[in-house]
Structure formats: C-alpha cells, structure tokens
C-alpha cells in the first residue's frame, strides 16, 4: 500500500496538521493521513452507496406508485423491504466511510461492507415476492 510518509511507523496519536479541528475527531485523531488517492476512493464508495440508496428508494416507491398487476399484499411487502434497504444504505455509506478511513489511517486491512449480505438477501426476497405476486 502506498502511503505518504510510509517509512514512519503509525503512532496512535494524530500526525497530520489540523487533525484536532477535523470532524469526526475519532477518525482524524488517530494514525496519519493516508495517500489522498485512497481517501478519494473511499469518498467515491460512500457516494456509490448513496446512489444505491436512491435506487432502492425509487424502486420501492415505484412499486407502490405504479399500478402493476401484482397481488397487493406481496407488492406492499416488496416495497417495504426495498424502502428499508434504502434507509439502511446511507448508514452503511457513513459508517463504512468511517471504518475504512480509520483502517487507512492506521495502516490496517480494509473492513468488509456490512450491508453486502443483507442487501443481496433483501433483493433476492424482493424478487421472490414480486415473482409470487405476478404468478398468484
């Protein structure tokens, strides 16, 4: 991994200027500034989760707003699952960004996305609900 000043060990205290004024402090008070490219990639991942959230909300609202030939109960259940996933995605975006930034600053391995399995399982459930709603 390419890190600015990588020849120095990673102390627990902040090594970057102005670290005490940057928010969230629990992130910027630890380790040292990573290579900016990694921070920017982390920011892009955050934005990708935000766009995923928008898509999930849009799908949930569309299921309810558009009059599709789906059994109403199953359609509503699928819409609620999509909306719940859409509400959870911004949380993953923020906490994922914090955890990754912390790992980068400490020079440790990157954490896995916590929402990957729930998102996959939820989308599979939505697919099954819509399929059943179309068949029944």
């Amino acid at each position: 991994m390419v890190k600015r000043g990588s020849s120095a060990p990673h102390p627990d205290g902040p090594t970057s200027p102005g670290a005490s004024t940057r928010w969230p402090r629990r992130v910027f008070s630890q380790g040292s500034d990573p290579d900016p490219r990694f921070s920017l990639a982390n920011e892009r991942t955050f934005l990708a989760w935000i766009r995923t959230s928008l898509a999930l909300f849009a799908a949930g609202v569309a299921l309810e707003a558009v009059n599709l030939p789906i059994v109403p109960g199953l359609r509503r259940a699928a819409a609620i699952v999509l909306i719940l996933l859409g509400a959870a995605a911004p949380a993953q975006a923020w906490f994922g960004w914090v955890r990754t930034e912390l790992a980068l600053r400490r020079g440790r391995g990157l954490p896995p996305p916590l929402m990957a399995v729930p998102l996959g399982g939820g989308l599979m459930l939505v697919g099954i609900l819509v399929l059943l709603g179309l068949i029944l």
């Binding site: 935000i50 928008l54 859409g86 509400a87 911004p90 975006a93 923020w94």
Partner: peptide
Amino acid sequence: ALATAVGGLSV
C-alpha cells in the same frame, strides 16, 4: 447521508 435517509424515507 442523513439527507438521503430522511428525504428518501419521507417520500
């Protein structure tokens, strides 16, 4: 992140 969650949930 907060605006996305609140805006999406409200709509």
